[in-house]
Simulated scan of single mutants.
Amino acid sequence: MRWPLAASGTTDWLRELCGDGLTGFMPPPMPDAAWVLNAMYEHEDGPAGMSYQEYRRARIADGSVRPHTVNGVDLEAGSTVTGGGLGRAEHPGPGWRRLRWAELARRTGDPVVPDGLLPSHRCFPSAKKDGSRPLGIVPPTEGSLDRETWTRLIGILTEHSPAGPETRCLAYYSPLTLGTTEFEKLHVRAGNLGDAGILYDNPETGFSPSDFRAEDRSWCLCTDYDLWATKVAGSPLLVEALVSDVEIEAVRPP
Rank of each mutant, 00 (worst) to 15 (best):
R2A: 15
A6M: 07
A6H: 11
A7W: 13
S8N: 13
G9T: 13
R15K: 13
R15P: 04
R15G: 06
R15C: 07
E16N: 11
G19I: 09
G19C: 12
G21E: 01
L22K: 13
M26R: 06
P27G: 05
P29T: 04
A33L: 06
W35M: 01
M40Q: 11
Y41C: 07
D45S: 15
G46E: 07
P47I: 09
G49N: 07
S51D: 00
S51Y: 00
Y52N: 04
Y52C: 01
Y55F: 13
R57P: 00
R57N: 06
I60S: 04
V65S: 10
R66P: 06
R66D: 12
H68V: 15
V70S: 08
N71P: 09
V73A: 13
D74L: 04
L75E: 11
A77I: 08
G78T: 10
G84C: 07
L86Q: 05
G87H: 10
G87E: 12
H91G: 02
G93V: 04
W96H: 02
W96K: 00
A102W: 10
L104M: 05
R106C: 08
G109M: 10
D110A: 02
P111G: 02
V112D: 04
D115S: 15
L117G: 03
P125W: 03
S126V: 04
A127I: 09
K128W: 01
K128V: 08
K129T: 04
D130W: 00
G131W: 02
L135Q: 01
G136Q: 03
V138M: 14
E142W: 09
G143K: 01
L145S: 06
D146I: 05
R147H: 12
T149R: 03
L157H: 00
L157V: 01
L157T: 00
E159N: 13
H160R: 10
P162W: 09
G164K: 08
T167H: 10
Y172E: 03
S174Q: 07
S174N: 09
S174V: 04
S174T: 06
P175L: 00
L176E: 15
T177S: 13
G179A: 08
T180E: 03
E182V: 06
F183L: 14
K185R: 15
H187N: 13
G191M: 03
G197V: 05
T205R: 07
S218G: 12
W219C: 05
Y225C: 09
D226N: 11
T230N: 05
K231T: 10
L237T: 12
V239I: 15
E240D: 14
E240T: 14
L242P: 01
V243Y: 03
S244E: 15
V246G: 11
E247P: 01
E247R: 09
E247T: 12
I248R: 02
E249V: 15
A250Q: 02
A250H: 01
V251K: 11
